[in-house]
Design a binder for these strands. Structure first.
Length: 118
DNA sequence: CTTATGACGTGGT
DNA sequence: AACCACGCCATAA
């Protein structure tokens, strides 16, 4: 996959297939997280046919270009905590973006009961 | 082919 | 709740 910049035509969610297809599915799922909602690495992995590949989701998110339009900031860990260091540039960016779209972030975490997706 | 590496998850202390 | 030890799995070396 070469274009994570929202120009890709997202296919249907796959539950099995080549790694390329899984990666495409990953982009599709990521792109479909609604504004003001959040999900976890594990959930994305599951929905993308990667089973327990939560760490892969994190790895791929980290490889997104800096100017990507995909909502990487809506991905948290299974506890609802932000995984990026709070003091890092990306960490504060994530927090700022979430707050900007109405997601309450308190002590580096979010209430999944309230903002979790799906 | 074998190891190491993660924006992780889970179960046990 | 916080920590830890393992398990996971595509990728890179």
């Amino acid at each position: 996959m070469k274009d994570p910049q929202n120009t890709v035509v997202f296919p249907q969610v796959v539950t099995q297939g080549t790694n390329e297809q899984k990666k495409q599915a990953f982009f599709q799922v990521l792109a479909s997280i609604p504004v003001g909602r959040v999900t976890s690495y594990g959930k994305i992995a599951e929905l993308s046919g990667m089973g327990r590949g939560a760490r892969l989701v994190g790895r791929w998110l980290g490889q997104l270009p800096e100017d990507t339009r995909l909502p990487w900031h809506r991905v948290l860990n299974s506890q609802g905590k932000l995984s990026l260091p709070a003091d890092s540039p990306s960490g504060s960016e994530q927090r700022a973006r979430l707050l900007a779209e109405g997601v309450l972030v308190r002590d580096g975490r979010v209430n999944l009961r309230q903002y979790g997706w799906p």
